[in-house]
């Protein structure tokens, strides 16, 4: 009798937990979607400026999220451009060349880098900018380049880990194919291991893109501002979507600005959802590949 009671209550609790979680997420996101749906239009991006003029950079956009969107795209592009080669190279090193000792020591550092609060990475970027400002040139201040570098540091451990795991998870029979045919270690990596691990690595890169796009803490210390227009150079300040959402939530002048905030939140959510789906699809293809492919 007692057993049945425990059985029932534990099961009920589990279902209740699922319900609570689903309700919170659907509630929070649904609220943003419903409130903000009405603001989704070209006007959200371009305000009163003609879209074509804005896209061709003929006129500046003042009351739309176009500059913030362009800022985010530039920022993410730069950060991934910096982080990808280093991250993937370090991942390959960890999986294929490092001794077990190095693997564990370096792995500890990468875990710490992945674990430290992103605001500390931002603080680091800010301090570096300050350092160079005093020691090298007073033209250097928090800017697009510093932000991109800091974001690159932020996603570096993810890139290293996903590359390393994708390579290490390759089954042994795939791993020995090329050496048995006389391939050197480098040839094995280039011709067999990397192609087979590609989908895992690519989905890691896409998830890193999402991480860069959504991060706010790092950029708010390293050069993002509320109004800057389009970024003019690597050393200029810039606008970004997540920071735009943050500022609107803290202080909005009128209803129209608040609605732009909702709109921007939906845009950012959609971008991240898209990237996430893409990464999942690619990873599933990887699973298929390994499962049906090489048997």
């Amino acid at each position: 009798m007692v057993t049945r009671l425990i059985d029932r209550s534990v099961t009920a609790f589990a279902w209740l937990s699922g319900l609570v979680l689903t309700a919170s997420v659907v509630g929070l996101m649904g609220y943003v979607l419903i409130k903000g749906m009405g603001s989704l239009s070209p006007r959200l991006f371009f305000g009163n400026t003609a879209p074509l003029d804005a896209l061709l950079l003929r006129r500046q956009v003042f009351d739309g999220i176009f500059p913030a969107t362009v800022g985010t795209l530039t920022l993410v592009g730069l950060a991934i451009f910096i982080a990808m080669p280093i991250g993937i190279a370090a991942g390959i090193y960890m999986a294929e060349f490092a001794t077990p000792r190095i693997q564990s020591v370096f792995g500890l550092f990468f875990d710490i880098l992945a674990g430290i609060p992103s605001i500390l990475v931002g603080l680091f970027g800010f301090s570096v900018a300050l350092f160079f400002h005093h020691r090298v040139s007073d033209r250097i201040a928090p800017c697009l380049l510093i932000s991109a570098l800091s974001l690159a540091f932020l996603v570096l451990p993810y890139l290293i880990r996903t590359t390393q795991t994708a390579l290490e998870n390759l089954p042994r029979h795939v791993r020995v194919t090329a050496p048995a045919l006389g391939a050197s270690r480098l040839q094995t990596i280039i011709y067999v291991l990397l192609p087979q691990a590609l989908s895992g690595i690519v989905s890691g890169v896409i998830l890193s893109v999402g991480r860069c796009a959504e991060d706010t803490a790092v950029i708010m210390l390293t050069g993002v501002v509320a109004t800057a227009g389009l970024p003019s150079s690597l050393l200029s300040s810039y606008e970004a979507l997540p920071f735009f959402i943050y500022t609107i939530s803290a202080q909005y002048a009128d209803q129209a600005e608040l609605m732009r905030g909702y709109g921007a939140a939906i845009v950012l959510l959609a971008v991240c959802a898209l990237l996430f789906t893409l990464a999942t699809l690619i990873r599933h293809r990887l699973a298929d590949h390994l499962f049906y492919g090489t048997r």
Binding site: V32, G210, E214, C272
Partner: peptide, 23 residues
């Protein structure tokens, strides 16, 4: 639910915060 949970890892923190302030 599993799928939703995995999707949650991709939701931007700032959007959570935004929804939190107004809801």
């Amino acid at each position: 639910l599993h799928r939703l949970v995995r999707f949650m890892t991709g939701i931007p923190t700032v959007v959570y915060g935004f929804a939190g302030i107004f809801l």
